[in-house]
Structures are given as C-alpha cells and as structure tokens.
Amino acid sequence: MALYSRSGRPRPQAGGFELFVWYYMRLSGVALFVLALTHFSLQHFLFDPANETSQWIFNQRWNSVFWRSFDWLMLMMVVTHAFLGIRTVTMDYVKGGWRTLALTVLYLVGVIIFVMGTSVVLSVQMPGGA
C-alpha cells in the first residue's frame, strides 16, 4: 500500500486508533452515501421544506418506528463521521497545546450534538403509537 495518496489520507501504517479511524471514515462514508442522500432527497425533492412544520414531523414523518430508526442511525453515522473528519482537519492545522484544547472542545460539542439529536428522536410522542 502506497504511502502517498492522490485521493484521501494514506492508510496509517502504525495501526491502532488512527488505522481504525481510517477504516471507520470509509465504512461510515458508504453508509452515509445511502442514508444522507436518501434523507436529502426525501426532505427536498419528495416533500418541500415550506410544509415540513413541527406538526408534520410529529404526525407524519416521525409517526413511524422505521423512519425514527433510520434517522437515528443516520445521526450516529453523521456525528461520528463529521467530528472524526473535523478532527483530522484540526490536526492538520493546529499544533501543540492549542490542538489539545481544540480537540477537547470538538469532542465535547460532538457528544452534546449526539445527545440532543438522540433525545429528540426518542422523546417526541408518536401519535400513531401506543
């Protein structure tokens, strides 16, 4: 495997966490190709943002275990993929103590965003449910 890449980051040779991240970005990328593009097509092509009120979300869009699971799976993939990606960008440009600070803030924000998304997709009452 070449150390130089014309495409993405070269595969880390040392193994460990960096190699895990390298594979994880590619696997979650494939998942998001399906999940995120389906989501965008639904929200913008099949439906129209002007009609997607909170009532529409609760009564129609999220009145389904399947779509809530779909959206939660997408949340999990997009938050991990996006924050690990920004981690790589941060490590390219920020060095030393600032890097530690920047990554700490980044991870904290990532966890908060994940918890907020999870709590709303789980807690909003399902009109068609029990």
């Binding site: 909170s54 979300i57 997009v78 996006a82 920004i86 960008v89 924000v109 965003i113 709303v120």
Partner: peptide, 27 residues
C-alpha cells in the same frame, strides 16, 4: 464541502431539538 456540511449538521440537530422543545420557534 466537509466543513460546510459539518456546520449544517450542527445547526440541523439544534433546529430539530427545538422542534421537540419549542415547536413555535422551529416553525
């Protein structure tokens, strides 16, 4: 494009969280 999408993902989770907590502001 990665940085742009990352920023929107954060905004988007915040707005959906708002839809659950304060639907009027979301609308």
């Amino acid at each position: 494009s990665a940085i742009g999408i990352w920023l929107f993902v954060m905004l988007h989770v915040l707005d959906i969280y708002l839809a659950g907590g304060n639907p009027k502001v979301y609308d």
